[in-house]
Amino acid sequence: MSEAGPLVSLAGVERLYGEGGGAVRALAGVDLDIASGSFVAIMGPSGSGKSTAMNIIGCLDRPTRGTYRFAGVDVTGLDRDQRARLRRSYLGFVFQGYNLLARTTALENVELPLIYRGLPRGQRRQRAAEAIRLVGLEGREHHTPAQLSGGQQQRVAIARAIVTEPLLLLADEPTGNLDTARSHEIMDLLTGLNRERGLTVVMVTHEPDMAAYASRSIRFVDGHVAGDETRRAT
């Protein structure tokens, strides 16, 4: 893994859904580099390919054409299990709909990725509790999603994403289901993780207010990168 190069590097990435004439070109040749430690916001109209790009960056999906290098390693052709191992070691996901396991406590939800990594129970408990403290949910460890507000659930999801200490956090519309005040709290949390822990964050959002937290803003239109601006540190 090279220190100098970009953490994420997409080159000529295309993603087609379906075959032949009726195929949908969700991504139509995307070239994109994301440096380690940056906080990137992806914006663009609905259907412009933002989620598709996130799935590929998150190794949940593979490009139809083009190459994807993660931390300098070509991961384009990895199989299912190899991508799963990559995800659980280096990637964290936060979704619009929180996607916590129902009827499962916050602590157990946060522990889940560590279970799949085969960590012993004691270590898991400790790390999960620490991640929950980090997102400001101390005391709510034993609450189930149904007993938590939307903002709290999203915090649990963030704790679950960072408990493995990933290199990259991917958040697809993390504030899409939250009110403004709660959205800003989540953004503060992500900004803190980015600044204090050097966690690279890539976030899709429709709201310019939220995108303003990022240091770089990328605009997707029709499966292309149509705009890319980097702000000076505020």
Partner: peptide, 11 residues
Amino acid sequence: GIRLAIGALGR
């Protein structure tokens, strides 16, 4: 889906 996304192997 959640389990697979956060890194559960197929097996």
